[in-house]
């Protein structure tokens, strides 16, 4: 029984890590109806930039120059500023030219962004594995291990608390601020929002900036877990079943979807895996999401689309 509890807890905490990535997708999709293929790479780029600033790595040369090193708080703030700048450049150079284009065109643009950012990250910061030392808690929780013989990762508990704070902040931002209301208006109807004076371009910059900040949080958590490296961009694949299950437009959906996928895949791997050769958690997550789709095509919390014909 204790082992089952451990499996469930590790599934929940892994699910939170997936949800952190899924949140970024939801933000962009909510505001523009576009699936942002580059979200995983945004997390990688943010992580690379943060590490570079923390350690004083000279951009493009990759050698470490300690004179450039920044304290963690300043490095995080500077990375946030860089992610906002990236959102502005992205909007000015690409999105501004794609207003009123089909969603598939915008999706293709995000595909291009993913490759550009991955290449840029490599050129600017180098491809080696980077150890992200922000002093985050690491290893198993001694309290749970010694008191209950329960294995719980401290980093993942911290990630869960961070995700909780992030969801509350995002919910307040979307529901209680003028910008948040404008974002929701744009998400509901671009034309109507434009007609009442909401600037679509400003909204895009804001939403991409927020997605960049969420990507930084995901990059920090995943980077602290395995080091900042280019496989981080693949964490987007872990977020996909979460989105399918939770719905592409719901922030709580990303969290609940992440938890269900996390627990589902861990139980499947531990209890079903040995009978089918193991390594099933990746495809099991997608299968679980597809089963949900059969009953709720819009996902658990997604908006039901009703079209008059």
């Amino acid at each position: 029984m204790l082992f089952f509890v451990e499996v469930v807890i590790s599934g929940l905490t892994a699910g939170v890590m997936y949800a952190l990535v899924a949140l970024g997708f939801v933000l962009i999709f909510k505001a523009s109806g576009v699936f942002n293929f580059a979200q995983g790479v945004l997390a990688l780029f943010a992580g690379l930039t943060l590490h570079g600033l923390l350690t004083g790595t000279v951009p493009f040369v990759h050698t470490v120059n300690p004179a450039w090193a920044m304290p963690a708080w300043l490095a995080i703030l500077t990375t946030i500023a860089i992610m906002i700048l990236l959102a502005i450049v992205w909007e000015r150079l690409v999105l501004a030219n794609l207003v009123n284009q089909e969603h598939i065109i915008l999706f293709m643009a995000t595909l291009g962004l993913a490759y550009v950012l991955e290449g840029a990250g490599d050129i600017i910061w180098g491809s080696d594995v980077k150890v992200l030392d922000l002093g985050l808690p690491q290893g198993a929780s001694d309290y749970f291990l010694d008191t209950f013989n329960l294995y719980v990762e401290k980093l993942e508990l911290f990630a869960a608390a961070t995700a909780g704070v992030l969801v509350v902040v995002l919910a307040l931002f979307f529901n209680k601020t003028r910008i948040g209301r404008a974002l929701r208006a744009v998400a509901d109807d671009h034309q109507a929002a434009l007609s009442v004076g909401i600037s679509l371009r400003t909204i895009w910059v804001i939403v991409w900036s927020v997605a960049g900040i969420v990507a930084l949080v995901a990059g920090i958590m995943w980077g602290a877990k395995s080091g900042i490296q280019f496989s981080l961009s693949l964490i987007a694949l872990k977020a996909l079943p979460v989105l399918i299950l939770g719905g592409f437009t719901s922030i709580p959906g990303a969290i609940v979807g992440g938890l269900i996928i996390g627990v589902g895949e861990k139980i499947a791997e531990v209890y079903m895996g040995p009978y089918v050769g193991g390594a099933i958690e990746n495809w099991f997550a997608y299968m679980l999401a597809l089963v949900f789709l059969l009953f709720r095509p819009q996902g658990l919390f997604g908006e039901k689309i009703i079209e008059r014909v």
């Binding site: 499996v7 590790s10 599934g11 496989s231 964490i235 872990k238 895949e265 791997e269």
Partner: peptide, 29 residues
């Protein structure tokens, strides 16, 4: 990148030795 289920099984079954044939991020995790 995600190996929690594997290591939970190792924790439960307590092998005397673990060998690894890994590559890339799999090793670090």
């Amino acid at each position: 990148q995600e190996q929690k289920a594997t290591w939970l099984q190792i924790r439960r079954e307590r092998p005397d030795w673990v060998l690894m044939w890994g590559w890339g991020v799999m090793n670090q995790v």
